[in-house]
Simulated scan of single mutants.
Amino acid sequence: MSAPTAAVMPRQVRTARLLLLGMAFAGMVVILALQEGMTSYGLGDLMAPWILVWVCALLALTYDGRARGGTRVTTVVVMVFVLVSSFNQALGATAPSEFVDAALRIVLGLPVVVLLLLPEPTAWFDRAK
């Protein structure tokens, strides 16, 4: 009898994980860079979508072996909410910093959603325990 082989995380899932962790770091940098002169309302408005990105980054930390299909679906749904609000913010931006903030979430978030919806990551998350 051969020993059971360990499930290896697909390349697409590793890439999505790295993108999410990179987005979380980028969010901290953006908030620190843009917080000067903002009211508490403005800072909350700036932080709201990034908090959802940080939740997705925390979910990405569980992708190694404990995560199943629900984690993938939750990440995709939350990222879709982030993307919808980012498109809305980018289209209604009045300052270049608002546009860059939203564009950063779009450029890094859209590939995450696409990568997690591919067949290989779907099969990996739905594997037997």
Rank of each mutant, 00 (worst) to 15 (best):
V76Y: 12
A128C: 13
T122D: 05
P111R: 07
V112G: 08
A57M: 02
A26M: 11
T74L: 10
G22T: 02
D126R: 12
L108C: 12
Q35V: 07
L58F: 14
G109S: 09
Y63Q: 09
E98Y: 06
V114F: 08
A103Y: 01
A102W: 03
L116H: 08
T71Y: 11
A26S: 13
V100M: 00
S2A: 12
T39E: 01
G22N: 07
M1A: 14
D126P: 14
P111N: 06
L61T: 05
L21T: 00
Q89G: 11
G92H: 12
L46I: 03
L59K: 08
M23G: 03
A95N: 02
I106G: 10
S97W: 01
F99L: 08
S97A: 05
A90D: 10
A57T: 13
Q35G: 15
T75E: 02
G70S: 13
E36F: 08
P121Y: 01
L115W: 02
S2F: 04
R14P: 06
T122Q: 10
V82Q: 10
N88M: 15
V77G: 15
T74I: 01
L52W: 03
P111F: 07
A57S: 13
P121A: 13
Q12R: 11
S97L: 00
V114E: 02
R66K: 04
E120S: 14
R68D: 15
A93Y: 13
V8Q: 15
L118D: 00
L83S: 01
G44F: 15
M9Q: 14
P111D: 10
G69S: 09
L34P: 04
T122A: 11
E120A: 03
D64C: 09
G70E: 00
V55M: 02
F25D: 00
L91V: 11
A60Y: 01
M1W: 14
R11H: 08
R66P: 04
R66D: 01
L110E: 11
A93P: 05
E120L: 06
Q35P: 14
P4T: 05
N88G: 15
